[in-house]
Amino acid sequence: MEMSEILNHMMEPRNYGNMNNCDADGIGKNPENSEKVAIYLKVEDNKISDIKFQAIGCSTTIVAGSIFTDSVKGQSLEDADELADEILNMLDGMSSEDAACSEMVAIAYKSSLETYNFRLEDANYPTITKMISSTCQPKEIEEEI
């Protein structure tokens, strides 16, 4: 990705913040540290009418969340899920930090989608949290361990 595009998302992250009246939310969490991403969904006619995210994480996570939410806003839940799958399939080709951050965003979306489906049956269903499998540590350190 071009540096100018990355800077754009760093300077003005899209869809960042809390959503009090969301239909569902989900969390992607890194079990190695306290980093996590929360995604909030507002759904109308099976489409994402609004989406927000919040993160406890680094700038890479913010850029990943900003790009993902910007891409899926207005899309169907299934299309957004496909994009999340595509991201998860690309993790091997990324640096460890990029992989962990991108996975947190994709997993947070998948958690929010699962929460949404459960809430169709039970409006009080609790927020689903899923752990990521990528590690944030650089590959050479992983090998030493």
Partner: peptide
């Protein structure tokens, strides 16, 4: 030329 407003802080923090 890269000024940005710091993002909202998560309550948990």
């Amino acid at each position: 030329g890269i000024l940005g407003v710091p993002r909202v802080i998560h309550k948990e923090l």
